[in-house]
Write a protein that binds this DNA or RNA. Structure first.
Length: 282
DNA sequence: CGGCATACCTGCAAGC
DNA sequence: TGCTTGCAGGTATGCC
């Protein structure tokens, strides 16, 4: 289930199957996911070759020849399957099938249909929605304590909500926000604005955040990478792998920080579960 | 505009 | 066992 590390894992898993491949045929099993597919979706894709797969935040982007980009989001429950052989095996909630020149099939499955697929000119990607409003890539060089302090200055909302805001940092979701805040020993209830001082400089806690964020994301990507190497599930699906968390979904368990005697607590913030240790996260 | 609740959709686990 | 309820890692929209 896809936050940034899961999407990156899917990208790496799909890349070998898709790179340099011609899209021979696109089959749509329904007219929409979260929104209708763009007009002439299949026709605009068929016959083009995939040059590469990239990722921005939680979006997966297939770059095709002729300046066309297929922008995909996995929503809450999207996954891909790579298969060969005939006949195609159909599963519930298969919505899109890509038939490649190699004979391989890539199938998109999404029970909740919160995912999306859109077509955009690659040359205008950054100016088009949703990219134009996205914040910095957490694994890029732009994520610094100073940048965070500037973005969080004056914010009256919690740091938890602020980090979930894709306009601040793009790609964090509920799990990795909880994990990063635990790692940085910051309470999710703390007001975002308090991470910048009066001169809009980062506080000590704010200075711990960029490293904490990178650490949890990179660890998750590494874990996804190893589950990929073990090989896709028996059905070839990509996009789910279990990873051990320090706080997420651990309500009632002992805090894992050495020396801390706290118990992981669940609260609800802006309608979503937050897990944290009230003893060591301040 | 900022902050929050709500809607979208299905599956699953827990509780009665 | 079978039904109901609540919850799930996503974003977009509308309301104050």
């Amino acid at each position: 289930m896809p936050e940034l590390p899961e999407v990156e894992t899917v990208r790496r898993g799909l890349e070998p199957a898709l790179a340099s491949q011609r899209l021979d045929k696109i089959e749509l099993m329904r007219p929409d996911l979260r929104r209708p597919f763009p007009p002439d979706f299949a026709q605009r894709l068929e016959g083009r070759t995939v040059e590469r797969l990239s990722r921005r935040a939680k979006y997966l982007i297939a770059h095709l020849d002729g300046d066309l980009c297929l922008v995909m989001h996995l929503g809450m429950s999207g996954s891909f399957r790579i298969e060969s052989g005939v006949p195609a095996n159909e599963k519930p909630h298969d919505h899109v099938r890509f038939l490649l020149g190699s004979g391989i099939r890539v199938t998109y499955n999404d029970p909740r249909r919160f995912g999306s697929m859109d077509l955009v000119a690659c040359s205008r990607l950054e100016q088009s929605p949703p990219f134009k409003t996205l914040g910095v890539e957490p694994l890029g060089t732009e994520l610094t304590a100073a940048h965070l302090a500037a973005k969080l200055r004056g914010k009256a909302t919690s740091i938890k909500a602020a980090l979930l805001d894709q306009r601040v940092i793009a790609g964090l979701g509920n799990i990795y926000v909880c994990e990063a805040l635990w790692d940085a020993r910051i309470s999710p209830r703390r007001l975002a604005g308090t991470l910048a001082d009066a001169r809009v400089r980062p506080t000590a806690a704010c200075r711990r955040l960029p490293e904490a964020i990178r650490k949890v994301l990179l660890a998750a990507i590494a874990s996804g990478g190893s589950s990929l190497r073990n090989h896709f599930q028996t059905d070839g699906s990509l996009g789910m792998f279990q990873h051990s968390f320090n706080v997420y979904d651990r309500e009632g368990e002992a805090c894992r920080r050495p020396g801390c005697r706290g118990t992981i607590t669940r609260i609800v913030q802006t309608g979503r579960s937050t897990f944290y240790c009230p003893v060591c996260q301040r």
